[in-house]
Nucleic acid binder design. Structure first.
Length: 200
DNA sequence: AAAGCTTTCAACCGCTCGGTT
DNA sequence: GAACCGAGCGGTTGAAAGCTT
């Protein structure tokens, strides 16, 4: 279980993609679409596994990718969404057109975590760091309520940092997030998955 | 100028999930 | 219901770039 047939194939290239490989993959998908990813490399004449082709397409070759640095507003949105969704990068990416889950995950790990810590906010719980250190065993039934208050705390901080216009936009967002039906209890299932991964 | 350290980011790995047989 | 398979996800790794001393 969990094994990929492509893993058994020999002579498959790994590592960075060459411009020629990009060109082949781009031309193939533009012409035929990707269909079944495992058959893409063969059809496109690439010595890669389908999984690698899929990743390259999604993270780099897709024509609708935005690329470039993240705007302040995008960063704020990621922080907000992370507070609600946790490390569900694909769901967060779905709210940011032209951005990939990998890109957002990298930004979070290299940059946003640091920024939050500098603001005195724990990047995992989105609570003030002092509060996290003192209260380890918080009543889980209060988690959803806490989440919303944390969001408003972060908004207050962001308001202080950013322009009035931007803060107004942000102020409107939590309700829009809620109206889109993000279940607050997903936080629990997310952490349970992380726990499972740690066990492996 | 160069060596060492840190940061960034593309890509891989292992796993789960959902569909199919 | 079990086994298989492909797609997708999140964590991790490692090379390259950037920065510091």
């Amino acid at each position: 279980m969990g094994r990929h047939s492509c893993c058994y194939k020999q002579k498959l290239r790994k590592g960075l993609w060459s411009p020629e490989e990009d060109e082949k993959l781009l031309r193939h998908i533009t012409k035929y679409g990707h269909g079944c990813w495992s058959s893409v490399p063969k059809q496109a004449g690439l010595q890669r596994c389908g999984k690698s082709c899929r990743l390259r397409w999604i993270n780099y070759l897709r024509p609708d990718l935005k690329r470039g640095t993240f705007s302040q507003e995008e960063e704020n949105l990621i922080i907000e969404l992370h507070a609600v969704l946790g490390n569900r990068w694909s769901q967060i990416a779905a709210q940011l057109p032209g951005r990939t889950d990998n890109e957002i995950k990298n930004l979070w790990n290299s940059c946003l975590k640091k920024k939050l810590r500098q603001r005195g906010i724990d990047p995992v719980t989105h609570k003030p760091i002092s509060e996290v250190e003192n209260v380890e065993d918080i009543d889980t039934s209060a988690k959803s309520r806490d989440k919303m208050s944390v969001l408003s705390n972060e908004l207050d901080l962001l308001k202080a940092e950013n322009s009035n216009q931007e803060a107004t936009l942000l102020e409107q967002r939590p309700s829009s997030i809620a109206s889109q039906g993000y279940p607050l209890e997903v936080q629990g299932s997310s952490s349970s998955k992380i726990t499972n991964n740690n066990n492996s």
